[in-house]
Nucleic acid binder design. Structure first.
Length: 262
DNA sequence: TGTGATGTTGAATG
DNA sequence: GCATTCAACATCAC
């Protein structure tokens, strides 16, 4: 579920659904994902408050409370937020619920429990602490090009490094490399300015379009890599999809179509 | 039955 | 100290 466009969509729905809606109660069913807070501290920070604003940085989604504190929702691999009015609509892997005074329930589900949910007293301090790079949608071209200089890391590892640029995960990194026609294993520092500019443009256009489509991949353009991202697929006039491991993640690419720069 | 999964972290290595 | 790699985390679906 959660890379930048998915998190952006979660934030969008959250704003539309619960902003300024008074909260009555919080129930924690599995405290593993709270990471830092005890269930009591977590619940007490949220109960009898309202969410008044949101902020997204990369894959990190912050919801601001009346008190000025933020609740961080980092969705990990399988986190998602659901909204419903009856307990029988509760998602299978629900980890906590927020009950609003008007009867709406926000249910947080996370099968694999890799989420990070916590109360953030000071947003600015927290962002410095986590040392996140600039958000992928906000980073400027000059700053982006600099990330690649002198580095021997593969191109894809740069894109996925949240300390360098925040928001790109495994799937969108593959999409960017494919559309830029560059092999994800290309040496970062060996890429020419022209190639880096292409990566930059593709990164922006892919993320923007995905956000506009609310990360609903079924309506992504037909010429995207998305649906083809599987070994052995033969893309007409392009080539056969292959699999490898780059930056510790399963990586799909099309040999020859995506130029390997060393 | 074994394998892999849209993420992050911290330890180990160079 | 910096850059880079890799196992670990938890659980289920295919």
């Amino acid at each position: 579920m959660p890379e930048l466009p998915e998190v952006n969509t979660v934030a969008k729905v959250f704003r539309k659904t619960v902003l300024n809606n008074p909260i009555a109660k919080v129930e924690v069913y599995d405290s593993k994902i709270l990471r830092r807070d005890t269930p009591d501290v977590f619940a007490q920070a949220i109960e009898r408050q309202s969410f008044i604003d949101t902020y997204r940085h990369g894959k990190y989604f912050f919801a601001e409370l009346d008190s000025g504190k933020h609740v961080l929702f980092h969705l990990g691999m399988t986190g998602d937020i659901h909204y419903y009015h009856h307990e029988d609509e509760r998602p299978k892997y629900v980890r906590f619920e927020i009950f609003f005074a008007d009867g709406l329930i926000l249910g947080y589900e996370d099968l694999r429990k890799f989420s990070q949910i916590l109360i953030v007293p000071n947003l600015k301090e927290y962002l410095e602490e986590t040392r996140l790079g600039p958000d992928a949608l906000r980073i400027g071209k000059e700053a982006f090009l600099k990330l690649f200089a002198e580095r021997k890391t593969p191109l894809k590892a740069i894109l996925m490094n949240q300390q360098l640029v925040a928001g790109i995960g495994n799937l969108y990194a593959d999409e960017i490399c494919y559309q830029a026609r560059l092999h994800p294993g290309s040496t970062a520092g060996a890429l020419k300015k022209k190639e880096l500019e292409t990566i930059f443009e593709k990164m922006k256009s892919i993320l923007k379009l995905a956000c506009r489509k609310n990360a609903y991949y079924r309506v992504y353009p037909k010429n995207w890599f998305w649906e083809w991202r599987k070994v052995g697929n033969k893309i007409p006039k392009i080539g056969v999809v292959k699999k490898t491991n780059i930056g510790g993640r399963t990586t799909f690419f099309v040999d020859k179509y995506q130029k390997l720069i060393r």
